[in-house]
């Protein structure tokens, strides 16, 4: 599928956005304001443009469902371990309520499965900010570990799209241990000579940055995503000074040498497919 086909010529869209701003009778939920350029966008236009602002190319967050639709060939995503449920295993105050709320939006902060991308078979894990800000709990760690173990056994590549506020503190030390556990699974997959690509999306921080997000053979990031270990607020508190505006963006970590490329969403699938093919992963018939 050619994803560039979705991107309409920019000037046409800018014109339509301006025109539509003057229409007062359209219901509010049909509009979305770009947090970057403040342009009011028609939700359907934004969605058709891969959840990218048609005016300034700000990349809106995608849910795991939307991202799977973006990357996996139609109906090819076969989800694994969807039945695994987070529980309040430390009796942490308030966690039951938080989980109950989160589970209305999805069943975990990551969805893992196998799919094809332009007919190339790969394991795909997609994190979801709607579930407790993509935080890593024991189920998150278990699902990612299983995904790598499956990929190692089946000799498949792994693609992970990260979005995470870090470790899930309501699971205490057990959430911290997921950093070691997932890193161990990544290492085994790597030692088996298999390809692992990470796609960092906004925001990728904390324990996820300090584990599997930064362990890819190839690390890609979407434009202007926050990529950090310690978040900007923590650093501002420590340093007692404002941080430069572009600090900890994708472009910043690219310039510092910690990622391979910043890839706009419109080119993400084609880039992934090219990389998979260059590593000898073939189309399945």
């Amino acid at each position: 599928m050619d994803f560039f086909a979705f991107v309409k010529p920019k000037n046409e869209l800018e014109g339509s956005a301006e025109k539509q701003q003057n229409k007062p009778f359209v219901p509010e939920e049909m509009w979305v304001k770009c947090p970057n350029c403040n342009t009011l966008l028609l939700t359907t236009d934004m969605e058709e443009n891969l959840h990218v602002c048609t005016h300034c190319e700000h990349h809106f967050r995608m849910t795991s469902k939307q991202r799977i639709e973006l990357l996996a060939d139609r109906d090819s995503f076969q989800e694994y371990d969807a039945q695994l449920q987070s529980t309040n295993l430390l009796d942490f105050p308030g966690y039951d309520e938080k989980l109950e709320k989160a589970k209305k939006k999805g069943n975990e902060s990551v969805r893992c499965g196998v799919c094809t991308m332009d007919s190339v078979r790969t394991v795909l894990c997609v994190m979801d900010a709607d579930f407790m800000m993509g935080s890593m709990g024991t189920v998150t760690g278990e699902k990612i570990t299983r995904a790598f173990e499956y990929a190692t056994e089946q000799r498949l590549p792994v693609v992970i799209c990260t979005v995470s506020g870090g470790a899930r503190m309501q699971e205490g030390i057990l959430s911290l241990m997921q950093m070691a556990k997932t890193s161990g699974a990544v290492k085994r997959h790597s030692d088996a000579g298999l390809l692992y690509i990470t796609v960092l999306t906004d925001p990728t921080t904390g324990g996820v940055t300090a584990s599997f997000a930064m362990e890819g053979d190839i690390i890609l990031a979407e434009p202007n995503a926050l990529v950090a270990f310690a978040g900007p607020r923590v650093i501002e508190q420590t340093m007692r000074q404002k941080l430069p505006k572009d600090f900890q963006t994708s472009e910043f970590v690219l310039q510092k040498g910690f990622i391979d490329a910043v890839v706009p969403r419109s080119a993400l699938k084609s880039t992934l497919v090219k990389l998979l093919r260059m590593h000898g992963y073939e189309e399945v018939k």
Partner: peptide
């Protein structure tokens, strides 16, 4: 781990991640 500008510029997350991975084997 130190949360500061230099630490972030030099890849605090990457450094920790690499240790986790390498220590495992």
């Amino acid at each position: 781990a130190y949360p500061g500008i230099g630490a972030e510029e030099r890849g605090q997350g990457q450094a920790i991640a690499e240790n986790l991975m390498e220590m495992m084997t």
